[in-house]
Design a protein around this nucleic acid. Structure first.
Lengths: 246, 246
DNA sequence: TAGTGGTCTAGACCACTAC
DNA sequence: TAGTGGTCTAGACCACTAA
């Protein structure tokens, strides 16, 4: 079921990305929007909060909302799924497991995955491609309780996230990401087809379920030029935007 | 004036970071929190929305809010200047202008700053330090209408953002950031004291006022190891999007 | 089934902006 | 000064979780 506030947000989003509302222009007042959609002002504010969080609009007390950007923002659910994100951008995702081995969690891994030190984990080295070109080398450590399900996946599984959702109802709901730059090591260089020592964008991330249970932690290295990360933010916080975590 | 919802958010934030509410634990119900603070449920929900946006807590319909992380938010969700960010982390920020020159905006700069092609701009090369160590080389292009104010600042100005706020009431309200990795060039290597060709984290950003007017666009290069960017996100709302280059 | 969060209403007052 | 968004209230109903 689509909620009223989602419908209103989508209508405004379309008006902005279609150019009906130019950058720097103002939106109708909340009262006008409420009347136009036959809802209360609170519902309109919930819709506007979503657009504020996306960085599409800005707001100041006393002045109407303004359009900050007409560029469509990437959908949330595609964020941690490489495959879904790629498809949303019109690209063809691919992937291949290079190595897969069980092992014991070291101190850091155990802490990140909230496991006892020495607990069993599954380490997977996976190469990801975009339109056939290698763009990302993932070194992922899975918690023991999901290891078997991951091992059961085909080596060229296109979307691990989708597969685990389908087979086990597992939802990747929350993530923490740390971004920096590193020099390509031997394996990085070979698989990503860059020179050893050349710059790579590294994203170390830990993903948890909706219940806050850690599922995996990963060291992802992106070939430069292939992918750019975009962040929009504001000094002003902040929104009532909320949707069920599914 | 601090609002009721801000006070409640801060109280909950403190309870979480102090460890009174452990990771994986649940918060009191919204009704209980409302009663405890003597406010309506709507106000409690406004406070919880702030913590959700920070990634400190998670929520699912039907279940109580859960604690996801006890680490204070250092997330990218809030736009902060280098100086603000440094001080928040307990570090001492510094800076020095290496070069400053007027010029004409090229095609790309004019588009980013919403100026006519060929309009006057101010280009500044600035080295930023953290506790005395060089960590960031900024190549910033300022729009013509603010150029004079920037030129009037001392070369070792610690916080340009703060200075422009004090002198002109100028607020940097919104930012769009693109992150990738690049090899250090000659100037990068010299100023950041790294080897030429070594990996740097590059952040290209454009900052605008609360009214949506672009103020500056910048190419920032971070020395690896000195700085890590952190992003927390979830399926519910997130500030991060990946976009293919080109 | 009881409790919880998600949605929505119909008001009210205040701080601030734009004119 | 009129209009706008920010805050807050006191309800109501529904979808979902957990026991």
């Amino acid at each position: 079921m689509t909620r009223r506030h989602q419908q209103i947000a989508e209508a405004l989003r379309r008006a902005i990305t279609d150019g009906d509302l130019p950058v720097g222009g103002t939106l109708p007042s909340e009262t006008e929007l409420a009347a136009a959609h036959g809802v209360s002002r609170g519902t309109v504010r919930q819709a506007l909060a979503a657009l504020l969080a996306e960085g599409l609009i800005g707001s100041r007390q006393g002045a109407r909302h303004i359009v900050l950007s007409t560029a469509p923002s990437q959908s949330f659910t595609e964020l941690r799924s490489f495959a879904q994100w790629a498809r949303a951008g019109g690209h063809s995702p691919g992937g291949r497991v290079l190595e897969s081995a069980r092992g014991a969690a070291d101190r850091g891994e155990a802490a990140l995955l909230q496991l006892a030190p020495g607990a069993g984990v599954l380490r997977v080295l996976r190469l990801r491609t975009l339109d056939g070109a290698p763009v990302l080398l993932e070194r992922t450590v899975y918690a023991d309780w999901i290891a078997e399900a991951v091992e059961a996946l085909p080596a060229d599984c296109e979307s691990v996230t989708q597969a685990l959702l389908d087979s086990h109802g597992l939802v990747f709901a929350h993530g923490e990401h740390h971004l920096d730059a590193v020099a390509a090591g031997t394996a990085d260089a070979r698989e990503l087809r860059v020179r050893r020592g050349s710059p790579l964008l590294r994203v170390r991330r830990t993903t948890t379920t909706a219940e806050g249970r850690p599922v995996e932690t990963s060291d992802d290295r992106y070939r430069p030029g292939a992918v750019v990360f975009t962040v929009r933010n504001s000094t002003q916080a902040n929104p009532l935007a909320r949707t069920p975590a599914g």
